[in-house]
């Protein structure tokens, strides 16, 4: 008769000897990576597709959403706004805007050192910005930069991207419904817009071209960036965090000047006196929260 016995079988043949946390961390990282890539792809796609929204639609959207643009309510403000609008029109004439596109400039008495472009060709210039600029040429540079954003449809691209990301996050996690609603239902999205470095660069180049065509030279264009570079960083983070390095931008402007300008001193236009005058500060506005 054959022998019968039950030897002990060593452990660990049917169980992988691997710490469960290791598997967990690896899988989590991989899943997060794929998720991020998907969200990024989605946002790029949305940003790409949204360019095909007609400008008229964008304007309609902006006027429906934006009840917050400050109205010029005093004579002084109206005068300033008219001056800014005229400047914008002069620059826009040299920027090949598409036929259906129009620029609307809004003036804000707010002390914020900023200017911004938002949906529907709306540009907001703050008194705070005007106060730090030495001449019209510097203001024109900032203005042309914002017009270039509008011309290149940057605000609606940013809107599309932001919307796609938010949609993805809220549908994936089931959280953020409130955020969604708040975002869609009011215009606080102005402050959510942030343009990428390449978009800022594109806008800078276009603005320089416009300045060259309008004034025949680009002298004074770097004034705002030179001013901003001298400021302590903290105060300006809001405005400049997404902008290319200030030194880079100044250098870019100087290089452009060397390539396109005739040598010698150019005449700079002064800002009109009335624009430097302050009126009593309006109560804090929602656009600068």
């Amino acid at each position: 008769m054959a022998l019968y016995e039950n030897p002990e079988i060593p452990e660990g043949i049917n169980v992988t000897a691997e710490h469960p946390l290791k598997d967990f961390v690896l899988l989590l990282l991989a899943a997060t990576g794929i998720l991020l890539a998907a969200v990024l792809a989605l946002s790029l796609l949305a940003g790409y597709l949204v360019r095909y929204v007609p400008f008229a639609q964008e304007q309609a959207l902006a006027s429906r959403l934006s009840t917050e643009f400050q109205r010029a309510n005093s004579d002084a403000s109206k005068q300033k706004q008219a001056y800014l609008q005229a400047l914008a029109n002069r620059l826009a004439a040299n920027m090949d805007l598409p036929k259906d596109m129009s620029i609307t400039v809004h003036y804000s008495t707010d002390k914020t050192v900023n200017a911004m472009a938002t949906l529907g060709g709306n540009i907001i210039i703050f008194q705070g910005l005007i106060d730090v600029l030495p001449n019209e040429n510097a203001l024109a540079m900032v203005m042309a930069h914002e017009i270039a954003h509008v011309r290149n449809r940057h605000p609606i691209v940013a809107l599309g991207r932001g919307f796609a990301v938010l949609l993805a996050i809220s549908s994936l996690t089931g959280v953020g419904d409130e955020l969604m609603q708040r975002w869609v239902s009011n215009m606080s999205m102005i402050t959510l817009f942030s343009f990428s470095r390449s978009q800022e660069h594109e806008a800078d180049v276009d603005a320089l071209q416009a300045l060259l065509k309008t004034y025949g030279h680009v002298e004074g264009a770097a004034a705002f960036f030179e001013y901003a570079a001298k400021q302590p960083r903290l105060e300006l983070t809001q405005l400049l965090s997404t902008h290319p390095g200030l030194e880079d931008r100044v250098a870019q402007i100087q290089q452009f000047a060397q390539e396109h300008d005739a040598a010698g001193k150019h005449e700079l236009r002064a800002l009109p006196d009335f624009i430097m005058l302050h009126e009593p500060q309006a109560p804090a506005t929602a656009t600068c929260d």
Binding site: N14, P20, D23, L27
Partner: peptide
Amino acid sequence: KRFVAGLRNLFGGRISAYE
């Protein structure tokens, strides 16, 4: 382990958590 296995289900492969 159920969560880890759920993740593993996305990528395929051996589910060592269940072994």
